[in-house]
């Protein structure tokens, strides 16, 4: 579904590369976790893949279902089925969640020659999706993320994911700032959404999230590269020994720069 080849990227107008040759392949039905310390480039990777205008790809390519999407705008990537659950969901005062979602849902439907939903049908659809994340319907009529608590914002991201039903979702530190109850709710939601037809890439600092959402693959990212990939055991290893030790070990093996 997603194939990232030797991806290099930097902040537009600056010289320093943040991604220094990332390779990653994600197939339908898979859940991946990307772990790594602060500043390793994890969040940048999710933004570059989803088309944030602040970043410039200097080398490599991003293929989505075989199509090179490296030059597409963020909305065009969304139309193809790419979703990013933001680490810091943005507040947009004066526009309700419902308005955004209907606009987004129908825009994506139009782009894919699918039937749009009229306001009444959409209302029913939304109510159904609220169950995924145990959200109250009052959220629908509140301005996007405005005045939401940290936990509510994260839940709202997963709710949007449920509504838009993307093929590939990047969850950028969705677990950060969540208490244990909220973490369970959010994880349950993600597990309900996950299917054989879609794929999920979780970005996280902590192994704790992986207790709730079981990844098929775990990748460790450091200094702008994925330096090690494996299964859930890799995450357990990290939890036990920390990033520093892994870095040292890899350095000894000549695998890291």
């Amino acid at each position: 579904m997603l194939e990232i080849k030797n991806l290099h990227a930097k902040v537009e107008g600056e010289d320093i590369e943040i991604l220094k040759g990332v390779n990653l392949k994600v197939n339908a039905g898979e859940i991946h976790a990307i772990m790594g310390p602060n500043g390793s480039g994890k969040s940048t990777l999710s933004k570059v893949v989803s088309g944030h205008p602040e970043y410039e790809v200097t080398e490599g390519e991003i293929l989505f279902n075989g199509e090179d999407i490296t030059e597409l705008d963020a909305d065009e990537r969304a139309h193809l089925g790419l979703f990013l659950a933001f680490q810091y969901p943005v507040e947009v005062p004066g526009i309700t969640n419902k308005t955004l979602l209907r606009e987004a849902y129908n825009t994506i439907a139009r782009a894919n020659d699918r039937e749009e939903l009229d306001p009444l049908e959409f209302e029913d659809y939304l109510i159904e999706k609220l169950n995924v994340i145990e959200m109250k319907d009052e959220f629908l009529n509140r301005s996007i993320n405005t005045g939401f608590s940290g936990g509510e914002k994260k839940k709202n991201e997963i709710f949007q994911m449920a509504v838009l039903n993307p093929k590939l979702s990047f969850l950028d530190e969705t677990d950060s700032g969540l208490d244990i109850d909220a973490l369970k709710v959010v994880s349950d939601g993600v597990n309900k959404i996950a299917s054989n037809d879609n794929a999920i890439v979780m970005i996280t600092h902590y192994q704790r999230l992986l207790n709730y959402i079981k990844p098929d693959f775990v990748h460790v990212m450091m200094a702008g590269k994925i330096i090690k990939s494996g299964d859930i055991k890799l995450a357990e290893e990290l939890e036990a020994h920390g990033y520093d030790e892994m870095q040292k070990e890899l350095a000894l093996n000549g695998e890291a720069q």
Binding site: D75, A78, V90
Partner: peptide, 19 residues
């Protein structure tokens, strides 16, 4: 803000207009 809305599939022009 614009990126957030565009990530949801909204065009740039509509995103600005919404904001």
């Amino acid at each position: 803000q614009i990126f957030y809305l565009m990530q949801r599939g909204i065009s740039e022009q509509d995103a600005i207009s919404m904001i």
